[in-house]
Amino acid sequence: MGMLSVQGITKRFGGLTAVDAVSFEVHEGTIHAIIGPNGAGKSTAFNLLTGFEKPDAGTVSFEGATITGMRPHRIVRLGLVRTFQNTVLFDDMTVLENVLVGMHVRTRAGFIGSALALPRVRTEERLAAEEAHRLLRLVDLGEVADARAGDLPHGRRRLLEIARALGSRPRLMLLDEPAAGLNNAETAQLAETLRRVRDSGVTIVVVEHDMGLVMDVSDEIVVLNEGRKIAEGPPLLIQKDPAVIEAYLGEEAVDA
């Protein structure tokens, strides 16, 4: 069984079945992609995996533990972390503070310890700040650590969100359209960062519309359409899959 095992998860919004009995496995040390036309249910699937929505049916287990219906912060504690399609940063905090918030689950200091400035709290703060700086350098944001997060340009916001997610030292990271709005150079840098992160031992699932990026980095692809899984396999096979071509061509025909 894989690191993440998804069994028949289903989510209905009123009459619409946004995710319909979807199952897949994610294996440790890989980059997994989920693709599909707009409204296919990709973000909803992420919400179901990370506790932001409760599935109407199905189970999700992560490293052997059932996490279906668990609250989001507990899932993060287990080592499964996510980013959002529309990049939600803490705009009024500094870049460094954003990453420090990302490290919340790996630090302990509570109200009392912090108020009294206990030695262990001070040490923890110092170590956390060092690690946060290290993570920022990993995504090339080292020199803007003290800038206000809300002042960063779009591309750097995406990277900061990844750095913040890495702050929890996750085992598995779910990225929702990390390349949206990035230019070619930034996308190339992102691909590079993803590989670096994977090589550091973090498994990745990425929802992405940028097919270049998907084919470039992913080991395995799941294709959703109208809430259902219509294909699954390595990039080369997916590119040739008639159902996938049909789903995408259908979309383009509508777009045109």
């Binding site: 912060h73 993060v76 996510r82 009024d92 905090m93 918030v101 919340h104 109200f111 108020a115």
Partner: peptide
């Protein structure tokens, strides 16, 4: 002492976005 350390950051995170705070593992 509280506001410039971990709990203070968590409070500000909740103010910024409760959803993102949860995604960072904060028990909001």
């Amino acid at each position: 002492n509280v506001v410039r350390r971990r709990p203070g950051r968590a409070l500000r995170a909740i103010h910024g976005s409760e959803m993102a705070a949860q995604a960072c593992g904060i028990d909001t």
